[in-house]
Design a protein around this nucleic acid. Structure first.
Length: 426
RNA sequence: GGAGAGAUGGCCGAGUCGGCUGAAGGCGCUCGCCUGCUAAGCGAGUAUAGGGUCAAAAACUCUAUCGAGGGUUCGAAUCCCUCUCUCUCCGCCA
């Protein structure tokens, strides 16, 4: 969320940022409600002040045994007036809040301006796509033939876009989760967490999924609870409402969770395979950082995520999202895209963002400044480290052999009980 | 699901029959003094948010906030109602 004062004083800048994001909002309604709010507030506070003063007076008179009846009668009217004003004020504040929570974050100055994903800017490329002396198969074909992936039975159990891993497939998925968590906790200094997979409306609003994107979420019937679309939501909200000591920053947390997304509006996209599922596994990285260091923290967060692909020796590229492709809460985002031979292109496997104080303001996550008065909002960051299902797909496609078997990347072999290759049952 | 207890500032904790209680006391923290160093001791300070004055900051001032929301009242941390959460006991359960 943007600060109300900032919006009031920088209307043009906010308007320009909205345009760069292909977004818009009724800022006239905002200014109108803001103005009204302050007019009412002033009258109301003046009346409250009078009531406070007179109430003390009444107390004094009663103590002395004097008759305060006329003052009591007057205050009765004043209180009624205050109550009426409170109602008006609440109306305007609701309007203001309603607009404020739907305003996206301002892009950082270093974010390239662009209309949509076609104008994202390449940042770096690591590794070279492998060459095959046979036509590489898609991961769903490889997986089905090896008997380690059974999307048809998953559809029977639930419906389209749910995974069923089998045998060494389930083992490989679990190995990847452990591999990623081990690296982030032992080498990158993240604290492992295992948060709830269902969260309330307040948490979803805190990280920015709500109120605008409710259609993307799975909601529990009869409860105001939602299945998490990413561990970002429960993990960022670990410190909602808290005031952290400055010397504790930065705080690093990692979490493995399943993620649930309705994928509303994506019918016909990636209909096959593991790329776009309603349920998938992800290891997430979350940072609570000092505002002065958050962009350095974004770079190291990106490196932490990249490390996984480097160790697995899978080629990838990193792009900087342009203003038009930036997520609602993000000020800057790098996407890591992994090479998928069967698709002959790079596909997103991680998204690393700095949200600056946007989420911290919504979720009220602050720190106490050493030697200075008051508190300030922390900066929050997060990134996938990595999406496990897509990593699984990338291994199958990049490490496939002509006979349909799949080699296990060396770094992962200890997590697979020393297995070097998943081979077709003969 | 049934019965009961509770929710106060960064933390702990006090608030009598509703009336200078934004809130005693303690801890912590900051600054100063003291002290070979450290510790202890002494003194002062130490919530957040929103308005107003102001170009702005500082400063001053007003208002709100004692889990959340509503009610009673001239006046509510204190009384009433609803909800949420925590704890204890019983039941059920992985």
């Amino acid at each position: 969320m943007l600060e109300i004062k900032f919006v009031r004083q920088n209307l043009a800048e906010v308007q320009a940022a909205l345009a760069a994001r292909n977004d818009k909002a009724d800022l006239d309604a905002f200014m109108e409600a803001d103005e009204q709010r302050r007019v009412i507030l002033q009258e109301m506070e003046a009346l409250r002040h009078r009531r406070n003063v007179v109430s003390d007076q009444i107390a004094d008179m009663k103590k002395k045994g004097e008759n305060a009846e006329s003052l009591v009668l007057e205050m009765r009217d004043v209180s009624a007036r205050i109550k009426a004003l409170e109602g008006d004020l609440a109306g305007h504040e609701e309007t203001l809040q309603g607009i404020l929570v739907t305003l996206p974050n301002l892009p950082h100055a270093s974010v390239p301006v662009g209309r949509d994903e076609t104008e994202n800017v390449p940042f770096k490329q690591v590794g070279n796509p492998p060459t095959f002396d046979f036509p590489p198969q898609a991961h769903w074909d490889i997986g089905e033939k090896l008997g380690i992936l059974d999307l048809e039975r998953a559809a029977k159990i639930t419906g389209a876009r749910f995974p069923l891993y089998f045998g060494m497939g389930a083992r490989l998925e679990r190995a990847l989760i452990n591999f990623m968590l081990d690296i982030h906790t032992t080498e990158h200094g993240y604290t492992e967490t295992l948060p709830p997979f269902i969260v309330n409306r307040t948490s979803m609003t805190g990280t920015g999924q709500l109120p605008k994107f409710e259609a993307d979420l799975f909601k529990l019937e009869n409860w105001d609870y939602f299945l998490i679309p990413t561990a970002e939501v429960p993990v960022t909200n670990i410190y909602s409402g808290d005031v952290l000591d400055e010397e504790r920053l930065p705080v690093y947390c990692t979490a493995y969770t399943p993620c649930f997304r309705s994928e509303a509006g994506s019918y016909g996209k990636d209909t096959r395979g593991l790329i776009r599922q309603h349920q998938f596994n992800k290891v997430e990285l979350v940072k609570f950082a000092h505002p002065e260091h958050s962009y350095a923290e974004l770079e190291s967060l990106l490196e932490n995520a990249e490390t996984i692909l480097k160790r697995l020796e899978i080629p990838y590229q990193v792009i900087t999202l342009c203003t038009g492709d930036l997520g609602f809460s993000a000020a800057k985002t790098y996407d890591i895209e992994v090479w998928l031979p069967a698709q002959d292109k790079y596909r997103e496997i991680s998204s690393c963002s700095n949200f600056e104080d946007f989420q911290a303001r919504r979720a009220n996550i602050r720190y106490r400044r050493k030697g200075r008065k008051g508190t300030a909002y922390v900066h929050t960051l997060n990134g996938s480290g990595l999406a496990v299902g897509r990593t699984f797909a990338a291994i199958l496609e990049n490490y496939q052999e002509a006979d349909g078997s799949v080699r296990i990347p060396e770094a992962l072999q200890p997590y697979m009980g020393g297995l070097k290759k998943i081979e077709p049952a003969t």
